[in-house]
């Protein structure tokens, strides 16, 4: 088995089952500062797609809490979290991956949700239906979507 899935394969299976080469949510290795060194898919992230995920309500909806000047075309940026301009200068790719996968490993007790986590919740629901979650609750973002978001964040350099 080749260790790296190709982007095309990842796209076909996007919403579905984890690829063999993908790191499952429970297997992600965080270092002591919350960074995740190894790509979750082995495939390069697509920053363009990452930007879409960051603004889409049904995906990352990151701008619910964060302002991103470069994404000001999308309406309504929140102010619960810090402005993400320059995040790619402040953090390494591994740190960004850790922050998006599970920011609680970096900031203890933060209000920021974990986007690549499937267990340990209190009354988890089935997305926004208010109903109980299915037994195999998927993470909010897929492994490739995490990589796409990380790729976008890495482009947010200080001037």
């Amino acid at each position: 088995m080749k260790p790296f899935a190709t982007t095309a394969v990842a796209a076909t299976l996007a919403a579905g089952a984890a690829l063999a080469s993908e790191t499952a949510p429970g297997d992600v290795v965080f270092d002591e500062y919350g960074a995740v060194e190894v790509s979750l898919t082995g495939a390069a992230g697509d920053p363009q797609r990452g930007a879409e995920i960051i603004t889409a309500r049904s995906k990352g909806n990151c701008i619910a809490c964060h302002e991103v000047t470069a994404l000001k075309d999308a309406p309504f940026h929140g102010e619960v979290g810090p402005i993400l301009d320059g995040a790619g200068s402040r953090w390494t790719e591994a740190e960004l991956r850790g922050l998006v996968a599970n920011s609680k490993m970096t900031f203890d007790g933060t209000v920021m949700p974990a986007f690549y986590k499937t267990t340990g919740f209190i009354r988890p629901g089935d997305a926004y239906t208010g109903k109980a979650a299915p037994a195999d609750l998927p993470p909010i973002l897929t492994a490739q979507e995490i990589e796409d978001v990380v790729a976008y964040l890495a482009t947010l350099k200080d001037e």
């Binding site: 919740f121 988890p124 629901g125 239906t129 909010i140």
Partner: peptide
């Protein structure tokens, strides 16, 4: 309350 809890992706 129900709407607010639902918005946390929870079972209300």
């Amino acid at each position: 309350f129900k709407g607010c809890i639902r918005d946390t992706r929870a079972e209300t």
